[in-house]
């Protein structure tokens, strides 16, 4: 057993788990943050995507002990003061989800994608960047639309702030 400490959504948390416990199970079962989903658990579908030290990663393919000492952001950490994150709002506005199972991973992927590409994102880049996230409902069309809309809005916000 390992006793591990990490920062999750800005809060320092500790827990005890087996060395073999996957990060996604630690997040869901030890911390009770069930927004991060377990889809395929074989590193294909991306439902479990979170941010570790600012980078998007698949939490089903990382041990919780590997993440000890890191700073984690899950889907629960995006909304601030009851306001949806612009990416979450865009998924809602553009109907970027149907059953919603892949959505936490899609949103976390989109946030990372927009952080790297900013408002320069185009449709081809978004589709290429979604390589590691699978959605069985939407056909991706509205997901792509939502990400482009969020990128434009967040780029706009950034310009307004400058």
């Amino acid at each position: 057993m390992a006793k591990i400490t990490m920062t999750v959504n800005g809060r320092q948390v500790s827990g005890t788990c087996d060395d073999r416990t996957l990060l996604v199970h630690f997040i869901r079962e030890n911390l009770g943050l069930t927004g991060t989903h377990v889809g395929c658990e074989t590193s294909q579908c991306g439902a479990c995507v979170i941010h570790m030290d600012g980078l998007s990663v698949k939490s089903c393919s990382i041990l919780a002990v590997q993440a000890a000492g890191s700073s984690i952001t899950t889907i629960e950490g995006l909304a601030k003061d009851g306001e949806l994150h612009p990416v979450q709002a865009a998924f809602k506005a553009h109907h970027g989800l149907q059953c919603g199972f892949c959505t936490p991973g899609m949103v976390m992927t989109a946030v990372d994608m927009i952080a790297r590409h900013g408002s320069n994102l185009d449709e081809a880049t978004v589709r290429a960047e979604l390589e590691g996230n699978i959605c069985r409902c939407t056909g991706y069309h509205n997901i792509v639309k939502a990400i482009l809309a969020a990128a434009a809005e967040m780029g706009g916000v950034r310009q307004a702030a400058e």
Partner: peptide
């Protein structure tokens, strides 16, 4: 290689 998340690890 792989996808963006895999490339981060």
């Amino acid at each position: 290689i792989g996808d963006p998340h895999v490339r981060n690890m």
